[in-house]
Design a protein around this nucleic acid. Structure first.
Lengths: 112, 112
DNA sequence: TTGATATGTAAGCATTATATTGCACATGAA
DNA sequence: TTCATGTGCAATATAATGCTTACATATCAA
């Protein structure tokens, strides 16, 4: 049986993954969500961060498939958006980077 | 004996590391330099990239301590700047991110 | 009805990142 | 001297990020 909460390495967009991990506050968010799922306002309070800014970071994390959000109706009837972190297992080594590097084409002007 | 070509995990600035890896062309550069060291103009030709742009990327990689540059006088007497990639071994797992997350303070406004 | 709490998102602004063009200097070989 | 090749970097333009303030809607409880 496949663990659906684990990101499969073959499906990873590494550029997005590394970009998602390139900001301390996003790493912090992942750390918090790995421990326990949280809804947006709750997370914003913990992080001491405005919701618009938090949304921006969550969007990046979601695009990198590190976290997922889902709506839920609380007992009191309010709509809550819960975020949780997925599991992952990426081994960063020279061989891994060489393999990854070989999948990257060299464009005419070095762009990508 | 310590392998001086290996980045020790205890010395890694992960934000800089991930930021360095967040651009495809930089990953490509690392892949190329892991295979063989190259001097700047040579690398620029391989990458099909202007030197100023390549310098910008190399600067980021150097700040993340993934590559190092050094000058050398060629047989013909010209000054060449050679770049080579260091080795590394980073295991990206939930536990690792949680540990990393715990080192990141929460600032008053979520900044960092 | 008002207040607290949840959602979402638009608009503006400052700062970085990315990428180009152009110039300068040095050396060896033709 | 001129050409090819190596070095470095300034100046500029454009795009993307990061962050704030503000507004809008919805529900429950007082």
């Amino acid at each position: 049986m496949v663990n659906e909460n684990l990101i499969l390495s073959s499906h990873i967009d590494y550029t997005k993954l590394f970009d998602a991990l390139s900001h301390p506050m996003r790493v912090k968010v992942i750390g918090i969500l790995l421990e326990k799922r949280r809804y947006v306002s709750e997370l914003a309070k913990i992080m001491n961060m405005s919701r618009p800014l938090l949304y921006m970071h969550l969007k990046k994390l979601e695009e990198a498939a590190i976290v997922t959000g889902s709506y839920e109706i609380s007992d009191s009837g309010k709509s809550m958006k819960y975020y949780e972190a997925k599991s992952f297992d990426v081994h960063l080594t020279p061989d891994m980077i060489i393999s990854l590097s070989e999948t990257i084409p060299i464009e005419p002007n070095g762009k990508s």
